[in-house]
């Protein structure tokens, strides 16, 4: 009986079956790349209150376009969509003031003590300030390499530029980032 129902429900299909199952492929895409997309949106200047919506939007766009996305090309497509979405949201943000709702209490944040949580948030706020001071092309490379820890060829594939360009931008980005960081430290020391 159990075997019979098993045969009805879940059979061992070859992986290529996903081709005929757009829902399964989209779901898998969320499973594999959600943190990546969500973190990128955060670091690319999307306000916290809008990140969840933006991430959902990115995956909805990708799910609609799924038939056009080559297998293995999901991350590249998602990255391009993230860049466009983040740019649009940053533009809209300048036009209107948003009423920030309290951030969602996710499992991760409730696992921290209030002190740790505050420190984490401040660290991210400082980081986002520093990233915001970088040129877009430097920030993109910096975020992919230093936060997402992609190799130069991986980042190059996502950005559609040669790996050598990634390496040289990363060097410039690191210099610019530490210059910003030192400036910020000098300012806070003076302020105290």
């Amino acid at each position: 009986m159990a075997d019979c129902s098993f045969a009805l429900g879940e059979s061992a299909e070859p992986a290529s079956h996903a081709a005929a199952q757009p829902g399964a492929r989209a779901r898998e895409m969320v499973g594999l790349h959600f943190d990546f997309v969500w973190r990128l949106l955060r670091r690319l200047g999307v306000p916290e209150a809008e990140v969840d919506d933006a991430a959902q939007q990115v995956f909805i766009v990708a799910a609609r376009r799924l038939p056009d996305i080559p297998f293995g090309g999901e991350r590249t497509f998602l990255y391009g969509t993230v860049l466009r979405t983040a740019a649009t949201l940053r533009r809209n943000l300048r036009r209107r003031e948003r009423w920030l709702v309290p951030g969602s209490a996710d499992a991760e944040s409730s696992a921290r003590t209030p002190h740790e949580e505050l420190e984490h948030r401040q660290a991210l706020a400082v980081l986002d300030t520093l990233l915001g001071a970088l040129d877009d092309e430097l920030r993109d490379v910096f975020v992919l390499s230093e936060i997402e820890e992609l190799s130069a060829p991986e980042a190059a594939a996502l950005l559609g530029i040669p790996a050598g360009t990634v390496a040289s931008r990363l060097r410039r980005a690191r210099l610019a980032f530490s210059a910003q960081l030192k400036r910020l430290q000098a300012q806070t020391t003076r302020a105290r």
Binding site: F34, R39, S104, D106
Partner: peptide, 8 residues
Amino acid sequence: EVAPAAAR
């Protein structure tokens, strides 16, 4: 940083 489960 990981995305909140609710967002996923």
